[in-house]
Amino acid sequence: MDQLLQFFISGLTVGSIYALVALGFSIIYNASDVVNFAQGEFVMIGAMSAIFMLKAGIPYPLAIFLAILTSATVGLCLEKFAIEPAKRATVVTTIIITIGASIFLRGAALLIWGKDIYGLPPFTDNTPIHIGRATMLPQNLWVMLGTAFLVIVVKYFFDKTRVGKAILACSYNKKAAYLVGINVKTMLLIAYGLSAALGAVAGVLIAPITFMTYGAGVMLGLKGFCAAILGGMGNSMGAVLGGVILGIVETVGAGFISSGYKDAIAFFVILLVLFFKPSGILGKGEVERV
């Protein structure tokens, strides 16, 4: 029983990391149907720039703020100089552009920050919190609270704000959105900027737990993508649900079946879910137009 509780808590802490990354995918997806393969790199850039600003003597909160700003700027530049000029690009081509961007950003990070592994100090005190015999770190709590907060923000943004609704309109039908007076270009720009900022927040929150290198974005991005798909792409609640389920499946799989095969177990579960719910847990079925 003690063990089960710890597995559950571990799953929740891992899962909220995935959820946080998954959330970043939804904004760009909602604006353009594009899965942004550079999302993991946004996470890495956020964490690495915070680490190096802190090293340069900038106070922690300011460093975090500047790191988010840096990442957002990178996101804006990506849209302005790579996505926008590719006017005739289809969704698949745009995805390949984001793959190119992720390689490019990794290369740039390698040149700027080198190959070493770095960590951030935890936001607050580092004494483990005990829940029965199970434990978790205060930083895990930060990640969970951060995820909860951001998911509400993202949901509010798409459901209630004009900009959010306009972005959604772009993804449903670009031409129609343009005709009702929505500036599609600006909406895309906003989407990439926000998505990058969200990624950076994720990076800063998780760096004290998992450490960072220039190449860490790839696996984080991959797991985030899985979580987003599992929950239903573009649905912010789905992203969180997907992330948490993925995390718990992994830890329970590792705990009771085999820690060596835990990822295989997780992917197997994802496949099973997709076979029965082809659009993810909370995703709406797509209707194909003829």
Binding site: F7, S10, V14, I209, T210, M219, A254, D263
Partner: peptide
């Protein structure tokens, strides 16, 4: 996995 973020499950076992 070398890219894992948390090993508390294995250590709990």
């Amino acid at each position: 996995n070398n890219s894992d973020t948390d090993m508390t499950t294995q250590l709990t076992k």
